Amino acid sequence: MHYGYDGCVAVVTGGSSGIGLATVRLLLESGARVAFCARNENRLNDVAAVLRRDFGADNVLTAAFSVLDKEAVNDFASQVRARFGTCDLLVNNAGQGRISSFADTSDDDWRAEYELKLFSQILP
């Protein structure tokens, strides 16, 4: 399905797997140029190689970092500006799936989840 994002620039956090990767693919299929990031550099590089092959290297920009690292977030924003000039769409998808019950999740795990979910949205 094509959603008409021709000429748009999209940024997707957490784009190397799951919903994030599906979003990156959909945006590329719909004509967008896409910059995406993820923490796992090896997986990011593997995914990026396939996407560059399928959609063209000029349409894909990647960076491996944690969205909780403010300096890295700002550096990525600068890379997007330098490469694409703008950002039309932002998909804040960074996160992780935790497999545990409520009772088995420690206070530190709850804090880490909260920090990731909240601060990944508000860091510039």
Rank of each mutant, 00 (worst) to 15 (best):
F119Y: 14
E113V: 13
V73N: 07
V11I: 15
C87Q: 02
L68V: 09
A49W: 06
A64R: 05
V80G: 09
A22Q: 10
E41P: 02
F36I: 06
E29W: 01
L44Q: 02
N93V: 00
V80H: 07
Y5K: 11
G15V: 05
L21F: 05
V91M: 09
Y114M: 14
D109A: 15
G18T: 05
I19P: 08
G15Q: 11
V91L: 01
A77I: 03
H2D: 15
L26K: 14
V34G: 04
K117T: 15
L26R: 15
P124D: 07
R39I: 01
R53G: 11
G56A: 00
F119V: 01
T23M: 12
R53P: 00
A112V: 04
A64Q: 04
W110V: 12
N40F: 05
D109Y: 10
G7Q: 03
L90F: 12
T13D: 10
Y114K: 01
A103R: 11
S120T: 02
G15W: 07
L21P: 05
A63F: 09
G14W: 10
A103P: 00
R98Q: 12
A49M: 11
A94H: 08
F119W: 07
V80F: 06
L28P: 02
F119A: 11
G85N: 06
L90H: 04
F36H: 03
V12K: 06
A94K: 00
A48Y: 03
W110E: 08
N42R: 14
A77Y: 10
E29Q: 15
L61E: 11
D69P: 02
P124L: 12
A32Q: 09
N59E: 02
G20N: 08
G97H: 05
P124A: 11
L116C: 08
C8Y: 09
D104S: 12
R33P: 07
V60A: 12
D54W: 06
V11C: 08
E41S: 14
L21H: 04
S66K: 05
V47H: 02
Y114W: 15
S78W: 06
R53T: 08
A35R: 07
K70W: 10
G85P: 04
L68Y: 07
Q96H: 12
V11R: 08
R43F: 04
E41A: 15
N42E: 14
A112W: 10
S120D: 02
D6V: 10
G85M: 03
S120E: 08
S30R: 03
R52Y: 08
V60Q: 10
G7P: 01
N93C: 03
T105Y: 06
C8D: 11
G31V: 12
D107S: 08
A64S: 15
V60K: 03
S100V: 00
T62L: 09
V91D: 02
Q96T: 13
Y114R: 08
T62Q: 00
S16L: 13
A112Y: 05
C8W: 06
